[in-house]
Simulated scan of single mutants.
Amino acid sequence: MEQKYEASASVVRRLPRYYRLLQELERIGQQRTSSRELGRQLGMTASQIRQDLSCFGCFGQQGSGYAVKELRENLERIMGLPQLLPAILVGAGSLGKVVSENVRFEERGFRLIGIFDIKPELIGKELAGIAISPLEQLEAFCAAHHPAAAVLCLPKESAQAAAERLVSLGIRGLWNFSHCDIAVEHAQVVTVHLDDSLMTLSYKLHNL
């Protein structure tokens, strides 16, 4: 049975940062690290890192720190990355093309199995080695393949309706690039607002 964890949203958001850093340490051949070293490289305190990791069990040993490979594998397991949940992408325009061809889905816990669009000129073309299907085939595809997640690369005016339709077809998670916030029941939504990141940088440059 898959183990479930309880952690705050802020802790969950930090897990990928830890994971990326551990990957880099492993890549350069470093075998052990410490909460102090991780904190120094991430701009965090050692106690915060220890507190975050304690939400998921006991890792490392006092005085000798963490085995890099072991901790990276534990975080991989905690985030469910090896399971490769099936996902689809809706919206094969310019943004959908960038996301489908540049995001390393299979290194991040997902396997892209379908791409959909409404534009006749896109149907049958391939993105990331997957043929674009017409949106009217969405119901039949979901019934046959049971994707767990969907990537939304749609105009904001159609994103909410599309999200509701996808959830009704069994989608449990939405990665939303549609430049708007959407709200649906019975599904997890992660929205990517590139503008927010830029405005945050503007604030920091003016105020910090």
Results as ranks from 00 to 15, higher is better:
residue 1 M to H: 13
residue 2 E to G: 09
residue 4 K to C: 09
residue 4 K to E: 12
residue 6 E to T: 14
residue 7 A to K: 01
residue 7 A to F: 03
residue 8 S to F: 01
residue 13 R to E: 14
residue 16 P to L: 01
residue 16 P to I: 00
residue 17 R to D: 13
residue 17 R to E: 09
residue 18 Y to G: 05
residue 18 Y to T: 14
residue 20 R to N: 12
residue 21 L to Y: 04
residue 22 L to T: 11
residue 23 Q to S: 13
residue 23 Q to K: 13
residue 26 E to H: 12
residue 26 E to I: 08
residue 28 I to E: 14
residue 30 Q to E: 12
residue 31 Q to I: 11
residue 33 T to L: 08
residue 34 S to L: 12
residue 35 S to R: 08
residue 38 L to D: 02
residue 39 G to F: 15
residue 39 G to V: 15
residue 40 R to C: 15
residue 40 R to L: 15
residue 42 L to D: 09
residue 43 G to Y: 13
residue 43 G to N: 10
residue 44 M to N: 04
residue 46 A to I: 04
residue 47 S to Y: 09
residue 48 Q to P: 03
residue 48 Q to G: 07
residue 50 R to P: 02
residue 52 D to P: 05
residue 60 G to I: 01
residue 61 Q to K: 04
residue 66 Y to F: 15
residue 66 Y to V: 14
residue 67 A to M: 08
residue 69 K to V: 09
residue 77 R to F: 08
residue 81 L to H: 03
residue 86 P to N: 04
residue 89 L to P: 11
residue 90 V to Q: 03
residue 93 G to I: 08
residue 93 G to M: 02
residue 93 G to A: 06
residue 94 S to D: 14
residue 96 G to N: 06
residue 97 K to V: 00
residue 99 V to Q: 13
residue 100 S to T: 02
residue 100 S to M: 05
residue 101 E to W: 12
residue 102 N to T: 06
residue 103 V to P: 03
residue 104 R to K: 10
residue 106 E to C: 10
residue 110 F to E: 08
residue 110 F to L: 14
residue 111 R to I: 00
residue 114 G to P: 00
residue 117 D to C: 00
residue 121 E to Y: 00
residue 123 I to Q: 02
residue 125 K to N: 04
residue 127 L to M: 06
residue 128 A to H: 02
residue 131 A to Y: 06
residue 131 A to G: 07
residue 133 S to D: 10
residue 133 S to I: 02
residue 134 P to L: 10
residue 134 P to D: 00
residue 135 L to W: 07
residue 135 L to F: 11
residue 136 E to Q: 14
residue 138 L to R: 00
residue 143 A to C: 15
residue 143 A to H: 12
residue 145 H to A: 04
residue 145 H to L: 08
residue 145 H to S: 03
residue 145 H to K: 14
residue 147 P to C: 06
residue 147 P to S: 10
residue 148 A to R: 13
residue 148 A to I: 04
residue 149 A to K: 14
residue 150 A to K: 00
residue 153 C to N: 06
residue 154 L to N: 00
residue 155 P to S: 15
residue 156 K to P: 11
residue 157 E to L: 09
residue 158 S to C: 14
residue 158 S to K: 06
residue 158 S to R: 06
residue 159 A to I: 10
residue 160 Q to H: 12
residue 160 Q to N: 15
residue 160 Q to Y: 02
residue 164 E to D: 11
residue 164 E to V: 04
residue 165 R to V: 05
residue 166 L to S: 07
residue 166 L to D: 03
residue 167 V to W: 10
residue 174 L to S: 01
residue 175 W to P: 02
residue 176 N to V: 03
residue 176 N to R: 03
residue 178 S to L: 04
residue 179 H to N: 13
residue 180 C to D: 10
residue 181 D to T: 07
residue 182 I to S: 09
residue 185 E to S: 04
residue 185 E to W: 01
residue 186 H to N: 10
residue 188 Q to L: 11
residue 188 Q to N: 11
residue 188 Q to I: 01
residue 189 V to L: 07
residue 189 V to W: 04
residue 189 V to D: 02
residue 192 V to L: 07
residue 192 V to W: 01
residue 193 H to Y: 10
residue 194 L to E: 03
residue 195 D to Q: 11
residue 196 D to M: 09
residue 196 D to C: 06
residue 197 S to L: 13
residue 199 M to F: 13
residue 199 M to T: 09
residue 203 Y to W: 14
residue 204 K to V: 15
residue 205 L to N: 12
residue 208 L to I: 09
